[in-house]
Design a protein around this nucleic acid. Sequence first.
DNA 1: TATAAATATAACTATACGGTAATATAGTTA
DNA 2: TAACTATATTACCGTATAGTTATATTTATA
Lengths: 112, 112
Amino acid sequence: MMNEELSEEALEMIANRFRLLSDPMRLKILHTLGTQEMNVGEVVAATKAGQANVSKHLSAMLEAGIVSRRKEGLNAIYRVSDETIFELCDVVCSRLKEQFKRRQNALAGIST
Amino acid sequence: MMNEELSEEALEMIANRFRLLSDPMRLKILHTLGTQEMNVGEVVAATKAGQANVSKHLSAMLEAGIVSRRKEGLNAIYRVSDETIFELCDVVCSRLKEQFKRRQNALAGIST
DNA sequence: TATAAATATAACTATACGGTAATATAGTTA
DNA sequence: TAACTATATTACCGTATAGTTATATTTATA
């Protein structure tokens, strides 16, 4: 039950999902989008990143099914379509906080 | 409450944590370790990867606090010290399954 | 002390990836 | 149709990263 074999292919798919989350700019875009819909220009403005850069990141996340897109006139309107993203970030964030707190406590007894 | 500012530094720390999980070999090592303790040689044998490669990956994850190490004679014995790793992988895995099922259903009505 | 074994580190290579500038592609409006 | 706007794509560059080979380091043993 526990130690199922994980195929190389499965490992790569999981790794690829994590890889999409392993870039600060993509995290910033996702955090900027949050639960709203935004067009590319709005994301560009909010993140202060280049248009091509934002577009490329959004395309990558679209292909992975992390965001979805709809067109409205000239605008491409994106939203986060995979809510588990936020769950993943929350888990990581909590863990990091915990970890730093533990390290801080480990240093608490040292005299300056 | 929801849309807190996330500093560049925080974004990078979170991204770095995801980056460590974004490599199939590291995932394989973590999955191999599971809840057991193993020395480097055992991990090398189980993963069929190079010794230097495994050692380097373990070092990176050690520094990040994902695994811990203890020495016993000649051996370096590692174990996963961050259980949230498995939680993260589970969430991703479930999401991927769901996503593929949805795509499969979307194609169900097409005549071959 | 010399040798062997387990692990870590350094140096190197090939590749992947992020950012940017320039250009292409729609879609809109005059 | 021509000019304009929003977005996407291409080409390129610099850097980061995974894997490998060779070597260093550490500990045990003859």
